[in-house]
């Protein structure tokens, strides 16, 4: 009698998998996510092990071979002091892939806390905090960075703090709107009817249910953070020489384009573009998987 088992309280066997397993499964089925993930993983591998398979030392100059065009020896050519561009592009992912994720993490933690606070308490707390966050969002990142450098000096930490704090209000806004919707659900009233503390209600009851939008926002912000790190480095406020960082390289070499030495800039620019596209594709995939 096969039908007896089917009359269990979980009649539909697709429901037996946990929500996490379902999300992972749908990520693995998403071409968008897999493409993006592959690109990002490529650069992560370069950051971790680049030194070992880069053909040259990215910092070693070779002034005789300066500004050599791409060739079998130097696939991407050499820069103005003869450093191998290919090796520099590969190892150049290291700093940006440390700074951007850490900045995003800081933004996510701070933004989630602020979003929970404003969305849960509403009223005066929300009004005051939200106005401050809005004012903060109105200041361009570059100006914040300038001020921070004056105050803190240039370092990776400064970049992380600047980008992290600039992105936190944006994440806070997303979390707040998700929390506002959750707060209307009866399980929050049920928690109040147990005299739960505000902290318990926020972090144990509500937070697990707003993880999906936070995850999506984080991956999207990571793309922007990479872009912002590259921009700050290009402007000289970010990662400092002698790092082979992409933004920094472009900044050092863009004057050469006029002389026809395009390879000193193009490959770094493509690297930045591919990483941002990779992160955005992965973010799209995550968004799709969580909103099915």
């Amino acid at each position: 009698m096969s039908a007896v088992q089917t009359t269990s309280p979980t009649p539909d066997d697709t429901r037996k998998r946990g929500p996490l397993a379902e999300v992972l499964l749908s990520l693995l089925r998403s071409g968008t996510f897999l493409t993006g993930f592959a690109i990002v993983m490529f650069w992560v591998a370069c950051a971790l092990f680049g030194e070992h398979f880069a053909p040259y030392d990215p910092l070693a100059d070779d002034i005789i071979n300066a500004l050599a065009p791409p060739s079998a020896e130097h696939w991407f050519g050499t820069d103005q002091i003869g450093r191998d561009v290919f090796s520099r592009v590969i190892v150049g992912s290291r700093d940006i892939l440390t700074v951007a994720p850490l900045a995003t993490l800081l933004a996510t933690v701070a933004g989630t806390a602020l979003g929970l606070l404003t969305g849960y308490f509403r009223g005066l707390v929300d009004d005051v905090v939200s106005r401050i966050l809005e004012a903060f969002m109105a200041i361009p990142v570059v100006i914040v960075a300038l001020l921070a450098i004056v105050a803190l000096g240039t370092s990776k930490t400064t970049v992380i703090v600047v980008i992290g704090l600039s992105f936190a209000p944006i994440i806070a806004r997303t979390v707040r709107s998700a929390v506002l919707a959750e707060r209307e659900l009866d399980y929050v009233a049920a928690a109040q009817l147990r005299h739960e503390s505000a902290a318990h209600t926020m972090f144990v009851e509500i937070l697990p249910n707003v993880i999906p939008p936070i995850l999506v926002e984080t991956t999207v912000r990571l793309g922007y953070a990479i872009f912002a790190v590259a921009t700050l480095s290009f402007m000289g406020f970010g990662i400092q020489p002698p790092s082979p960082d992409w933004g920094l390289s472009i900044s050092n070499n863009y004057g050469m384009i006029g002389g026809g030495f395009w390879w000193t800039v193009l490959f770094d620019a493509l690297a930045i573009a591919s990483l941002v596209i990779g992160v955005n594709l992965a973010a799209d995939g995550v968004h799709g998987a969580l909103n099915d």
């Binding site: 009698m1 096969s2 039908a3 007896v4 089917t6 009359t7 269990s8 309280p9 009649p11 539909d12 066997d13």
Partner: peptide
């Protein structure tokens, strides 16, 4: 008693037999 058979299960005899 019991539950409606799940969607798409094989039903050999009468669908209501279990209940």
């Amino acid at each position: 008693p019991g539950f409606l058979p799940g969607i798409g299960v094989d039903i050999k005899g009468c669908a209501f037999a279990d209940r």
